[in-house]
Design a binder for these strands. Structure first.
Length: 661
DNA sequence: AGAGTGGGCCTTTTT
DNA sequence: GGCCCACTCT
């Protein structure tokens, strides 16, 4: 929205550039102009939460708060970037000094400076989930736990257990009891593996995602001078999506804001959807108790959706017991009721979606303004195929993040090992790209290399058939470490590709060109960084390819239907939204119903899904589903559509031949 | 012994 | 598409 802003007519030494009163509603204005101190903003879906935060930041700066004394915590790095660029537009001035981003992002930034105090080096690597799993599995093998006698959790599960323990600040035993009772008796051994894992991370100079929070907190708790440094620096702390913070994040914030107590948290308990990651909306609910003198603001005017959609949302969420009572008010004029579409099976559902999208395009909707949302990634298979078949452009926020694709990780492993010679995982990954080198040989080579043997003298230690490739590998690493190259990640990537990875790629993958193109994009992206560490940490902390779009900015404006999980649709909006596979057991998912609070969280997720829609909402469910065993399963509609009064929806049966829906 | 390959089985959500 | 397992090849 571009609006002219008028200078405030009131005489001031330095007049305000922004006329807040004409740009914000009363509730938003009150929050933006609130006096310093603890502030809780309960902001319903589509009520201008981001707008409020953005103007608050602008307001602070206009009132003389230096940009680098402001900390803005957001749920994605993209959200931080968008907010800050809007602030710049408003103020017509650079606000680069603001510290903004995700908890992990800011943690990384702090830890790079003070790593030495924790026994780490400043050039530590960041491990993603796959790395964590691999390293835990290695620890598991080392620990010689007899996994045959008794079923013992695998690296995957252990990574979850460790993560939950850190994020909720509970012990391993407590997490096992609460979430994995069938492993409860193994608590002692699991804790031993965790200790080994922690030591191994320190030894290889690598941190996983949770370490970026845990070590940051430790740093501030254990070192009074560091604590004082950041406590006095951050005069104003603002936290977006506060309902999705977990224990450790809340503690970080409490500690950071302890001196000035100028803490503004914004959120909506009805949209808390990350409890499986340790998020606890008790943080938002108990905020006024923890901060005496909290000013509470409620923003309940919804600008986004037509009243019919909002009514459905309000009605649905009212079934939840645990929440702040609230009712969103619509300002938009009456539109159309949400549709409830019964389909024969997944294919018919996909057909319906595709057909309706074409019609919407004829009616004048841009494809960019249409989204298909679902509970789990695999629910979008049929829709993807149908859109493909009809040549309707779409983009998927896939389960795989950009960084997690094999070829991206391969090249990154070269860079990681080059700048952090202690990075065991990176070394082993790169080594296993050579012919005849698998896990065991990589272990052996690592033992030699980490013991101090120069790579250049190891060609006889590598398998015979890999001698030439080993020489090339050693030469490439040496070259990457040369001062001229070591801080130019873009040039480093180019070298890795040219020095053999290109050939490997050709031989290994059928879609060679697509992958090479990814690497070219990666190189372009990398060129913007002045240090390889910065580049690698940004890469590892990047969220989805599509949602961050760092590497392919030209796609931003392309006309595409968006396919996304509801989780990844958080904070976004579209003119028309389809929610598919609204079947009991799919949405809500079977798994979620296993624990007590699961259903309420799934209902909040449903609430998030429907409140993404501005004009039209299509809720669909198939009656039959093809299961893995090729059997057709009879499906029930989701309890979430059955529990809202039927008169709030227009019920239809998809019948594509006659196009009656 | 260890590397590489193919088939069968399963799939919640993510920094 | 990923993971595990069994099988074959070096």
């Amino acid at each position: 929205m571009s609006r002219e802003y008028v200078l405030n007519p009131v005489e001031r030494a330095e007049p305000l550039r922004i006329d807040y009163a004409s740009l914000l509603n009363e509730q938003q204005l009150a929050a933006v102009q609130a006096p310093a101190g603890p502030i809780l903003v309960i902001a319903g879906a589509g009520s201008g939460k981001t707008r409020t935060l953005t103007y608050r930041v602008a307001w602070l700066i206009e009132h003389g708060v230096p940009a680098d004394h402001i900390l803005l915590m957001t749920f994605t790095n993209k959200a931080a970037r968008e907010m800050l660029s809007r602030v710049e537009l408003l103020l017509k001035r650079d606000v680069k000094g603001i510290w903004g981003g995700t908890f992990h992002h800011v943690g990384n930034r702090v830890l790079r400076r003070h790593a030495a105090m924790l026994g780490y080096k400043g050039d530590f690597s960041i491990m993603d989930r796959e790395d964590a799993k691999d390293l835990i599995n290695a620890c598991l093998t080392d620990a010689k736990i007899d996994t045959t006698k008794e079923r013992f959790p695998k690296g995957d599960v252990l990574a979850d257990v460790f993560s939950l323990a850190i994020n909720t600040e509970r012990t391993i035993a407590q997490v096992l009891t609460g979430h994995y009772p069938y492993f409860e008796q193994l608590a002692e051994q699991v804790a031993k593996v965790e200790t080994a894992y922690r030591e191994r991370k320190l030894k290889t100079n690598a941190m996983d995602y949770d370490d970026l929070l845990l070590n940051w907190l430790r740093l501030m708790r254990e070192h009074a001078d560091i604590r004082a440094l950041y406590q006095s620096r951050f005069q104003y702390v603002l936290v977006d999506e506060y309902q999705d913070t977990n224990k450790i994040q809340a503690d970080l914030i409490d500690l950071l804001a302890a001196q000035h107590r100028n803490l503004m948290v914004v959120g909506d308990d009805s949209q808390s959807i990350y409890s499986w990651r340790g998020a606890n909306f008790q943080n938002i609910i108990t905020f006024p108790d923890r901060y005496a003198g909290t000013q509470v603001f409620k923003i309940e005017t919804n600008y986004r959706s037509v009243p019919e959609i909002l009514e459905l949302a309000n009605e649905s969420i009212s079934a939840n017991v645990r929440q702040f009572p609230k009712e969103l008010q619509a300002v938009r004029k009456s539109g159309t009721k949400p549709w409830l579409i019964q389909c024969g099976d997944g294919n018919q559902q996909a057909n319906f979606v595709a057909q309706r999208i074409l019609e919407l395009r004829d009616e004048g909707y841009l494809l960019n303004d249409i989204a298909v949302l679902y509970r789990s990634h695999f629910h979008c298979m049929e829709v993807q195929m149908e859109l493909q078949r009809r040549n309707i452009p779409f983009s998927v926020t896939s389960g795989l993040r950009f960084f997690e694709q094999a070829h991206i990780k391969d090249v990154a492993a070269y860079l990681r090992y080059a700048i952090n010679p202690g990075d065991e995982l990176a070394f082993k990954r790169a080594a296993q790209l050579l012919p005849g080198v698998g896990g065991k040989t990589a272990d052996r080579l690592w033992a030699l290399a980490s013991g101090g043997k120069p790579l250049g003298r190891m060609e006889h230690d590598a398998p015979k058939k890999a001698t030439a490739e080993w020489k090339q590998f050693a030469a490439t690493i040496a070259e990457l470490r040369e001062p001229g190259l070591a801080n130019q990640p873009g040039a480093m990537i180019r070298r890795v590709i040219e020095c053999g990875y290109d050939n490997y790629l050709k031989a290994r993958y059928a879609n060679y060109t697509a992958r090479l193109e990814d690497l070219n994009q990666l190189q372009i992206f990398a060129q913007r960084f002045e240090s390889t560490e910065d580049f690698l940490s940004d890469l590892a902390l990047m969220t989805n390819v599509e949602s961050e779009d760092e590497t392919a900015p030209e796609q931003e404006n392309e006309e595409r239907v968006r396919l996304s999980t509801v989780h990844q649709a958080k904070g976004q909006e579209w003119g028309v939204v389809f929610v598919v596979y609204l079947n009991d057991g799919m949405f809500p998912s079977v798994k979620s119903l296993e624990n007590r609070d699961g259903e309420e969280e799934e209902r909040r997720l449903f609430y998030v899904a429907v409140t993404r829609a501005k004009d039209e909402l299509y809720l669909s469910y198939p009656l039959l589903r093809f299961s893995a065993s090729q059997q057709e399963l009879l499906q029930k509609p989701s309890r979430f559509v059955l529990e809202v009064p039927p008169e709030l929806m227009e019920e239809v049966k998809a019948n594509l031949r006659s196009r009656e829906y």
